[in-house]
Design a protein around this nucleic acid. Structure first.
Length: 881
RNA sequence: GGGAUUGUAACUCAGAUGGCUAGAGUGCAGCAUUCACAUUGCUGAAGUCAGGGGUUCGAAUCCCUUCAAUCCCACCA
């Protein structure tokens, strides 16, 4: 025998994967005459290692890709990685700070070199990890969000939007991370609850509350709600003088409805530079504002004696001073409120006003289906018109909710790692600033003037990710040629022509805003096409305690490589697919992985059996030739399962598809067909059916299926190149299949009675039946009977659930042990009979329910009645004796 | 404050468009043993489908409501 007793995943997986790569089975071919199927891989961040959530999306996408290949399509699954500007930047800065350095110490150039080195390293690791999960994307088309082609397309996009007036530069309030010293987009800000002290301060005749006394230095305005009767005597614009932290200050009264009458005393001072709401109030009333905290998080000279100190240092001293001036009325030490933090770096966000680049989402200048629309409108339209389907559907609501509240997208970042903004500035003779936006650095040909300086900022990492579906399909060689326009690039790149729009985008629901929406936004603008036709969203993987896996709780993290080591990649894949429905989160459970590992082994041993009973020469047959009704039963089941599995896969219902295969293979194929095959061998059908099963299971468990295929059928070529063959059946097979179902019932019931009565070696008598005679040895063996004998009339215990007349040769004393169960069963029958009877007595049911259903109900009732009758008779007969 | 999701066996979860006696994995109980597989086989026990109400001939499934949990968005200075 060629196969070992147990399936050893670690032994086969690397070999099998190497074989796939060698044979280029993952390679897409745009020139193929087959139908094309395309999908881009969401590029994972190049921060190092993969987690289980990566394993999840790689598995789902790999199932899709392998399924479509077996479905006779030309498949492009395009892999790549993301430079992950903010995340990687934070990581490198953390490394530096461990060495006692900051990025300014080493300078921009050295910082970038160091980052590149780090990223190149982690990329290699990650790609190998993807391989060990079994993912089979087209590695020949591996892309990277910070490669040359990407830079070109990013700049093309920036330029095109700039020329349309969709990108503008402006001073706005933004989320500032004082640690990384960069802007953070709204979506990247997390809110965390914090307990702090709320101070009630005396401000002249008023009382104001604050948790941030350090922002109070710039106070010039006092805002009250115009509907507040308590302060109706104070007029808008009225000025008052009060004693404040650093002496006498003049305040102007402003009335604005943003003030909550019920919070504190209903009076507030505002700090527009460092608060979004205050900023909005200031904008409405045309107020002046100034910066109090600098971009490093330190107080500016306006804070007088506290200037140069960080907030942490200054706050207690400021409190001390306020206290000494008797300006603190009272303090609430248990005040709970939400603070904003950068989700990537965990730093406290300090709102700041700064010159930034923005994308205008409301300007209606984009040509879309012959109308001029804004980004916001296009985002709404493509979903409303079903140009793009989101699965599961409920995420459409979440999507619209987000789009409706969308504000201009701030795309500039002050970190160093990322796409540099393609804008250059210089000062001309009149000391005015000139600006140049272009694809490549401009050349300054004037002598004696300052040359062009590129904007120091980089772009939000999601800006380049947003181009992912089309930028990756552009031919890199063409992109090097700046003589070609962007349109030329699109129209001359075979991959773009063939594969765009892509068929599916498969990703987690948590990045629907960051990524999915922004891909739609940028792609529609740049290509005039939608980026994908379907969005399939999967859930988050959580740890066994039901919480999010997070780096701050290392015990919650599961390392997919360790799992693969222990149980194999196929086991991991199905462990996280089993029993999970689209869009729902899943809790990682090692039990499920184990169950899948056992299933691998089951498959393995089925194959081992087949190999064992097969002649050495394996002939390709594919005829599914049947010799008896068991064979026909199998063929019918195969056919049904095959159709259903393909149907589930078309609907992205992976868990259900897998579940069906699992049950079929284990409960039907192994437990019944293989068992009967020991006495009734049909070698070609065994091989044909195994081939079908391996193909069906292959998208889910590629390694074990390919390993078996290689050992058993290696001459038949690579599994991944085969297409599904439909198992042929004809109508009279169905009747045979039903016959065998009856025989299975017979065997099950016989086993049960023998178990309950604790008897062995019992004889089964049966009234003349051709089928039982034909299957006599099989029934005997599977039910563990001593013999199976045809008789003219019955004797012994009559089987209830079977259509045939047969009896087990059991003495009444033994049956008595079983009597309690039997009476229990009897009352179960009665309960169900009552239920069905009530239904059939209901006139409305008879009038309104479909005819077919009524007939079914009647039939069920008849069956139950007769079973009950039989059982009752038997019990009585045996009780009498 | 706005919104989404979840509540089904001891545990983790499936049950799309309402229609058999509500299923699986794990666990549990009993039995089997040199058979392809102990990563096994056979048999079994275990559920008021969170509670209440409604629609319907018929509800785990649809609607309303209460309770509990998780998450997203927006936020009070």
């Amino acid at each position: 025998m060629k196969l070992d007793k147990n399936y050893n995943a670690n032994q086969f997986e690397p070999l099998v994967y190497a074989l796939w790569e060698k044979n280029l089975v993952f390679k897409a071919n745009p020139e193929s005459k087959k139908e094309h199927f395309s999908m881009v891989m969401p590029p994972p961040n190049e921060t190092g290692t993969l987690g289980v959530h990566h394993a999840l999306f790689l598995t789902i996408q790999d199932i899709l890709a392998r399924y479509q290949r077996l479905n006779n399509k030309d498949v492009l699954w395009l892999p790549g990685t993301d430079h992950a500007a903010l995340a990687v930047n934070a990581l490198i800065e953390k490394q530096l700070s461990k060495e006692g350095l900051t990025k300014h110490d080493i300078g921009r150039q050295a910082f970038l070199e160091r980052t590149q080195y780090f990223v190149a390293n982690s990329r290699g690791n990650m790609l190998n990890q993807m391989r060990s999960i079994g993912a089979g994307p087209d590695w020949t088309r591996l892309r990277y969000t910070l490669e040359d082609t990407s830079v070109r397309i990013v700049n093309e996009t920036f330029l095109a939007m700039y020329q349309k007036g969709l990108i503008y530069r402006g001073e706005r309030i933004i989320n500032w991370d004082p640690i990384l010293e960069t802007t953070v987009s709204d979506d990247e800000v997390d809110h965390r609850e914090e307990q702090t002290t709320l101070y009630y301060l005396k401000l002249g005749p008023f009382e104001v509350v604050t948790v941030r006394p350090e922002t109070k230095f710039g106070d010039k305005y006092l805002v009250i709600n115009p509907n507040d009767q308590r302060y109706k005597d104070y007029q808008e614009g009225q000025e008052i003088e009060v004693d404040w932290i650093n002496g006498i200050t003049k305040l102007t009264i402003i009335k604005d409805e943003a003030v909550d009458l019920n919070f504190g005393s209903g009076v507030m001072t505002i700090t527009p530079w460092h608060s979004l709401i205050d900023y909005e109030i200031a904008q409405r009333h045309n107020l002046t504002y100034q910066q109090i905290i600098d971009f490093h998080g330190k107080l500016l000279p306006i804070a007088g004696e506290f200037a140069g100190q960080t907030i942490e240092q200054a706050r207690p001293k400021i409190i001390e001073k306020l206290r000494s001036k008797n300006l603190i009325i009272r303090e609430d030490k248990n005040y709970k409120h939400q603070v904003a933090v950068n989700s990537r770096s965990d730093a406290l966000i300090e709102p700041q006003i700064r010159l930034q680049w923005f994308i205008d989402v409301n300007k209606k200048v984009i040509d879309w289906h012959h109308r001029s629309l804004s980004f916001k409108e296009i985002l709404q339209e493509v979903i409303k018109n079903n140009e793009i389907d989101i699965i599961p559907k409920r995420f459409e609501k979440i999507y619209f909710n987000w789009v409706n509240n969308l504000r201009d997208w701030c795309i500039s970042r002050q970190i160093w790692w990322g796409h540099r903004i393609p804008v250059w500035y210089r000062t001309n003779v009149d000391q005015e600033e000139e600006i140049y936006v272009g694809l490549q650095p401009p050349i300054d040909d004037r002598e004696g003037y300052n040359g062009w300086q590129q904007d120091p900022d980089t772009l939000d990492t999601w800006f380049s990710s947003a181009l992912w579906t089309f930028s990756t399909l552009i031919d890199p060689a063409l992109a090097e040629n700046y003589q070609l326009s962007f349109k030329d690039l699109l129209h001359q790149s075979p991959d773009f022509i063939t594969y765009h729009p892509t068929n599916v985008l498969e990703t987690g629901w948590d990045i629907i805003f960051f990524w999915v929406a922004r891909m739609i936004l940028v792609t529609t603008f740049m290509t005039g096409q939608i980026p994908f036709k379907t969005v399939y969203l999967h859930g988050l993987v959580r740890s066994t305690d039901g919480k999010k896996m997070s780096k701050s709780r290392p015990e919650s993290l599961v390392n997919p490589l360790e799992v693969i080591n222990q149980y194999g990649a196929d086991a991991l894949r199905m462990g996280i697919i089993m029993g999970v429905s689209p869009g729902n989160d899943l809790i990682y459970s090692e039990e499920r992985v184990k169950a899948s590992r056992n299933f691998c082994n089951k498959l393995w041993n089925i194959s081992r059996f087949i190999e064992n009973v097969s002649d050495n020469v394996v002939q390709p047959d594919h005829q599914f030739e049947t010799k008896n009704l068991i064979d026909r039963w199998l063929v019918v089941r195969l056919n049904q399962v095959q159709i259903k599995v393909l149907d589930y896969l078309d609907q992205y219902r992976f868990a259900e598809a897998y579940d069906l295969i699992y049950k079929f293979v284990w409960n039907d194929y192994a437990d019944w067909y293989i068992e009967t095959a020991k006495l009734n061998l049909n070698q070609t059908l065994l091989e044909d059916s195994l081939r079908v099963i391996l193909k069906l299971i292959h998208p889910f468990m590629p390694f074990v299926s390919e390993s078996i295929w290689q050992v058993l059928f290696e001459n038949q070529g690579l599994l991944a190149q085969q297409t599904f063959e439909v198992v042929p059946i004809n109508q009279n097979y169905l009747a045979d299949a039903q016959q065998f179902d009856q025989i299975r019932k017979l065997i099950i019931e016989a086993r049960e009675v023998l178990q309950k009565t604790n008897l062995k070696e019992v004889i089964l008598y049966y009234k003349k039946s051709q089928i039982i005679t034909e299957l006599n040895p099989i029934i005997k063996q599977l039910a563990h009977l001593k013999d199976c004998v045809e008789v003219d009339d019955g004797q012994g215990w009559r089987l209830i659930n079977v259509k045939y007349d047969c009896w087990l040769d059991i003495d009444p004393a033994s049956i008595k042990k079983h009597l309690v169960d039997l009476n229990h069963q009897l009352s179960d029958y009665q309960k169900n009979i009552d239920k069905l009877q009530v239904r059939l007595d209901n006139v409305n049911y008879l009038n309104k329910a479909p005819k077919q259903l009524i007939n079914q109900t009647k039939q069920q009732l008849q069956e139950l009645l007769s079973k009950k009758q039989d059982l009752k008779q038997e019990i009585e007969r045996f009780s009498r004796n």
